[in-house]
Nucleic acid binder design. Structure first.
Lengths: 164, 164, 164, 164
DNA sequence: TTTT
DNA sequence: TTTT
């Protein structure tokens, strides 16, 4: 029989917040790689009119320029949009000799969202940011916005459930 | 032959900014409906190392609660994420009697993004926003952030092309 | 203010069937372009337990190799998976001088699905297909399957509503 | 500060083939659950003009009716389209007491594609299928097609790389 | 190991 | 009719 190959699609779309600063490292061959840890929230109903946020923590691996720019421009708390694919890493457990595998997400494009906190540059001082410190993503910049979250910034969630 | 129905998918995903305030109206039957006009930018290369932004303007129709909340909480300039589907409206042109059609996007879910400008509530005064005036989307709120963009806020685009 | 560019996304995903053979043409500059007409079905409930199929007809424009291969390998009835983006064509109406616009879908990748009818090569004769006539998509082949649908093949749709 | 919740998205789209028959089981509470093992192929270039297929194996968990219908209607080799989300299962390793986690895909909708092999009903006999034995997915049916792949149907993959 |  |  001729090969009847199916159309194939392996796509992951994530919109969420970084749970920590990206960690940049290099492979032995010198390729940049970084892991983005993203928290994605989902409203879940208990069926009795109560909604809670269920959070999924997803690690996304990015390579090359994307890795280097992620480390440069993304920081904990930042909102990001990631388009990527699933990858199943497989290896043999050295101790047991058993086959092991782990599902991962490889990020192909990363864009970042405006800083919800309207806050300054991550780790930023009080002065003008240097050009190289400008947060940016996907060719998209995101500036400092001067304000401090200040004393009003305690977490406060009441009354925000809009039945969109 | 039995019907061999294919899997079907009709999905539109948009992330962009509103080009104007949503306009809420009602059908004769009383159903709320609103049109969101969204500008989506795409970086386009001319092949010679120059990148420009190409903007696509997309109108998205939303219904019911989504329409009402869009009108309440979304304003011109706002970033939104829309998940929807394509719809082909067809009608007969009264004058010519010809069949006409128009491709549209129906928005099924709308979420909004933090205000990039770090600005206050849309149309907002200086005090605490009333609960009903809180901008929110998808069950997600977006608060005033107190800051003013200030004198630095002139549009400035140089140096922002990060090769992500 | 620095430019606070939003993340942007303009994505269309379609899975459906071609309503006619693709029509290949060339621009004055010699670029291949084809229009794919795709029917996408959606199950719609009337709220009273009855489900009907609502069909959306979407025209997708494809360029270059994708256009040429679409014309070579895709035929009416074929299942296709398209990933693309929305595009708003705008022009001035010559008669009225008014600005007009039309929302279109540009297909960036096209893959095709196995022929649900289990039928032979499109336009195919009885013999072995020549290599160049092999239907394929996205680097994916789809062979002739030689069989006849047989006497059971009258259209028959009852009882197929699986509450998946 | 009010909660400035980001838009959130956690979406997985897969189009591939089942590597084995779905396994249906029930939770202690009686909820049906099944695991679909899906192979998704991706064309990968080595940069020197050679393309190979890289296969990613993804396990997808489906619940309730979707689980039961998957077991009824889906079989090894079948093409499926899955729309779902990522989920991170976490638990404590009993032996080591360490926190462990595993990324999974939860399938929210499953549709199936026509059988590329043009073959009959899975496990099917020669007669008319009973209504309950009709393969179907997403409210979509897929009939027996009676034919035999015939003498042309030897596996043959050369020359199929269409530069779509 | 967790973000908002 | 356009947003950033």
């Amino acid at each position: 029989m001729l090969r009847t190959v199916m159309a194939n699609l392996n796509k992951v779309l994530l919109l969420g917040n970084l749970t920590r600063d990206p960690e940049l490292r290099y492979t032995p061959k010198g390729t940049a790689v970084a892991d983005l840890s993203i928290a994605v929230n989902r409203r879940v109903s208990d069926g009795a009119g109560n909604w809670t946020d269920e959070t999924t923590f997803v690690d996304v691996t990015v390579w090359g320029n994307t890795a280097e720019n992620s480390q440069k421009y993304l920081t904990k708390g930042r909102g990001v949009f990631v388009e990527g694919r699933l990858q199943l890493d497989t290896w043999e457990d050295k101790q047991s000799g058993q086959k092991r595998s782990k599902l991962k997400v490889v990020g192909e494009t990363v864009q970042f969202l405006p800083d919800a906190r309207g806050g300054g540059v991550p780790n930023g001082g009080g002065g003008s940011p240097s050009p190289s410190a400008r947060p940016a993503g996907g060719g998209y910049a995101n500036p400092p916005q001067g304000g401090s979250a200040g004393p009003d910034s305690d977490y406060d969630d009441e009354g925000d459930d809009i039945p969109f």
